Simulated assay, not measured.
Amino acid sequence: MKVGFIGAGSMGSLLVEAFVSAGAMQPADISVSSRTPSKSAALARRFPGLLPAPSNADAARGADLLFLCVKPSDFRSVLDEIAPVMRADQIAVSITSPVRLAHLELLLPCKVAKLIPSIVNSARSGATLCMWGSRIEPEDRAALMELIGAISRPVDIREEDVRAASDISSCGPAFFAYLLEEFTEAAARQSGMDRETAAVLAGEMLLGTARLLAEQGFTTQELQSRVSVPGGITAAALQSLRSSTAGAFPALIRVTHEKFTEDLNKVEASLFQNESQEGRP
């Protein structure tokens, strides 16, 4: 299977590296285009055999599967460039959540899907959010699920749930990295512990906690009750934590949803700015 990538930024490069490292793709089967040619050239140096494509149309033309790893504001220009060369049997995959499947199907002649990755996929972990266009056949879905399964756990979601799901799977690493940083910094400041030691302890703690939740069937409530003895240190600290963070996560979700709605409107305007409103989905 020939695979094209349009965009060699942080997520495009991460996916190329993850798929190749997992053995799910061979460099000789990959072509990459980028508006910054040095980025695709860097990938070619890291993965001999990978082909830097001179244009987005070149990356699309020979690909059975094409990953669109570009910013929402760049989608219209990219779609205009690739639509004339794409065939009905090809699959275009957007990794950009504010771009709707219905809009992609309107502007491209091929099959389309939306797969939202996470930075933790680079460690062959985490989830990939999977949404399918109306032209995707069962065999297409199975092939994509197998491919994504090499670097993550594929999870089907409704497109209308993509924002909340992305908050957890894709934004979550940043949120919890921030919390972990605050936690370790406080421990180091209060005790005088070396910060590097605190960071190692915190990382191992988070890894072990994730394994208990993902591999051993623990719930978050069970973990709290197992660690927190009534009247003990952890119980007292948990109560303080609950009080100080009350309302923080609902506020976080509100912010992400408001920004997402803003992005949806901007993307729709950019995709259809030169067309009449008639016939739009």
Results as ranks from 00 to 15, higher is better:
residue 72 P to S: 12
residue 30 I to C: 06
residue 102 A to W: 08
residue 67 F to R: 12
residue 166 S to N: 09
residue 159 E to L: 06
residue 62 G to S: 13
residue 261 T to V: 15
residue 99 V to L: 05
residue 3 V to S: 03
residue 163 R to F: 13
residue 228 S to I: 03
residue 201 L to N: 01
residue 5 F to L: 05
residue 229 V to T: 12
residue 55 S to V: 12
residue 154 P to L: 06
residue 145 M to P: 00
residue 119 I to L: 11
residue 256 T to C: 10
residue 239 Q to P: 05
residue 54 P to S: 02
residue 254 R to S: 14
residue 100 R to I: 07
residue 152 S to D: 01
residue 5 F to D: 01
residue 189 R to K: 14
residue 230 P to W: 09
residue 51 L to C: 14
residue 174 A to E: 07
residue 122 S to Q: 05
residue 257 H to K: 14
residue 107 L to V: 11
residue 164 A to R: 12
residue 273 Q to I: 13
residue 259 K to I: 12
residue 244 S to D: 02
residue 22 A to M: 03
residue 128 T to C: 04
residue 61 R to G: 06
residue 67 F to V: 15
residue 249 F to M: 14
residue 261 T to L: 15
residue 212 L to A: 04
residue 122 S to M: 01
residue 30 I to F: 04
residue 100 R to V: 08
residue 277 Q to T: 12
residue 189 R to A: 15
residue 175 F to V: 12
residue 58 D to H: 15
residue 118 S to C: 03
residue 103 H to P: 07
residue 251 A to Y: 11
residue 84 P to W: 12
residue 263 D to N: 11
residue 113 A to H: 05
residue 220 T to N: 09
residue 233 I to E: 09
residue 250 P to W: 10
residue 27 P to L: 08
residue 156 D to N: 14
residue 167 D to N: 12
residue 85 V to M: 05
residue 14 L to A: 01
residue 184 T to A: 13
residue 11 M to E: 00
residue 214 A to M: 09
residue 39 K to T: 05
residue 135 R to K: 13
residue 104 L to I: 05
residue 274 N to Y: 10
residue 254 R to W: 10
residue 193 M to V: 09
residue 160 E to V: 13
residue 122 S to F: 00
residue 281 P to H: 11
residue 49 G to R: 13
residue 124 R to E: 02
residue 7 G to K: 02
residue 219 T to K: 08
residue 4 G to D: 04
residue 7 G to M: 02
residue 127 A to D: 02
residue 91 I to T: 03
residue 127 A to L: 13
residue 281 P to D: 11
residue 57 A to T: 11
residue 226 R to V: 05
residue 253 I to V: 15
residue 102 A to H: 10
residue 178 Y to K: 09
residue 150 A to P: 10
residue 144 L to N: 00
residue 1 M to V: 10
residue 184 T to S: 09
residue 268 E to N: 14
residue 155 V to H: 00
residue 207 L to K: 14
residue 220 T to Q: 10
residue 145 M to T: 13
residue 186 A to C: 11
residue 97 S to E: 09
residue 154 P to N: 07
residue 156 D to V: 06
residue 231 G to K: 08
residue 207 L to Q: 13
